[in-house]
């Protein structure tokens, strides 16, 4: 009898231990699984949100079932996209004395506009007027001319000049005749000869984004033309264009001519005074296009021209993803 009792006790202990072990293992396993689950639904609360239906009744909806729609880009536009921001005239000043051909401007522009083609919108040229004069690096984008040749020749009003000085492109209207590209003396326009494929090659996310001439390249459309837009999508947020912020040498100054102020992110200066002090000029002024980009001559250079040569790539301006 004692044996039986011992046996049953042992059995009980035995079973108990087994059960305990199973529970322990199960518990650890469960906690792991639940922690994984919790990680994904961490943000969801048990809260209910009160919403109004279209016929005026109030309903309580689980917050997990409510999808927040990203606010449309041009929802609160206080101006017509073709007319532009009132009381502004955008200008850019490029200080050639500081340019080292770091090409950070080109990289930032390519990234910010999801450029998949072989031709960047921001180019840095090796310039040398004649054999005896010194070479220098010259960054060049669309000059947003005040007498734009490209706008004059467009047959369908796909490219237009705004009150705030910007020349933009409506990629929905463009018929791909390329007359604007033939007319531009600065070779600044690029063409989408094939399917740009930005969503595939660059993982461009178009969710919640409404295409607009104010954000060129989102998306780029096959058979239409593209170019630098002076980043109105950044100006809208009171931010400087990508190239201006990206330049490590403070080469680009950007601002509103009417405010007589330009900034490169660090220095903020009076525009007219800057041009006067540093003898600013415009490129190919004699053509009469009245560009909005001013250049400061490469005087008292901070770096040698040759230092920029190792970044120079004659045959490539857009880095391709691996």
């Amino acid at each position: 009898m004692k044996n039986n009792k011992t046996n049953s006790r042992r059995k009980f202990l035995d079973k108990g231990l087994k059960l305990g072990l199973v529970t322990a293992i199960g518990g650890i396993g469960l906690s792991k699984i639940t922690s994984k689950l919790n990680a994904t639904t961490e943000n969801s609360s048990e809260d209910k949100i009160e919403l109004m239906t279209t016929d005026g009744t109030l309903v309580q909806v689980d917050s997990t079932e409510v999808i927040v729609e990203k606010k449309s880009q041009d929802h609160d536009k206080k101006y017509n996209v073709r007319e532009g921001m009132p009381n502004r005239k955008f200008v850019m000043v490029v200080d050639l004395a500081k340019c080292k051909n770091a090409l950070k401007c080109q990289i930032a522009c390519n990234k910010g506009h999801y450029i998949t083609g072989d031709n960047a919108w921001m180019k840095v040229y090796e310039m040398q007027e004649s054999k005896e004069t010194a070479p220098y690096w010259m960054p060049m984008t669309c000059q947003h001319c005040d007498q734009p040749a490209c706008v004059t020749v467009c047959p369908v009003d796909a490219t237009f000049k705004r009150r705030d000085g910007l020349v933009l492109i409506d990629n929905e209207r463009c018929i791909g005749c390329r007359f604007c590209m033939a007319a531009c003396p600065y070779s600044t326009r690029v063409f989408n000869w094939g399917e740009p494929g930005q969503e595939i090659t660059l993982n461009m996310n178009m969710e919640g984004h409404i295409p607009s001439p104010e954000h060129a390249g989102m998306p780029s459309i096959k058979g239409t033309v593209d170019k630098c837009d002076f980043c109105p999508h950044m100006i809208d947020k009171n931010k400087l264009p990508h190239c201006v912020t990206a330049c490590p040498n403070g080469v680009f100054y950007f601002g509103d001519k009417y405010e007589d102020t330009v900034t490169n992110g660090e220095e903020t200066l009076r525009f007219k005074k800057l041009l006067k002090d540093k003898a600013g000029y415009r490129f190919m002024e004699g053509l009469g296009t009245e560009p909005s980009v001013y250049y400061l001559p490469p005087v008292d250079r901070l770096v040698d021209f040759e230092d920029g040569l190792d970044k120079y790539n004659k045959y490539q301006s857009v880095e391709k993803p691996e």
């Binding site: 072989d118 031709n119 960047a120 090796e126 060049m140 070779s187 004659k314 490539q316 301006s317």
Partner: peptide, 9 residues
């Protein structure tokens, strides 16, 4: 063109 052909294949 006026500016050198640059940065393209």
């Amino acid at each position: 063109p006026f500016l050198p052909i640059d940065g393209v294949p």
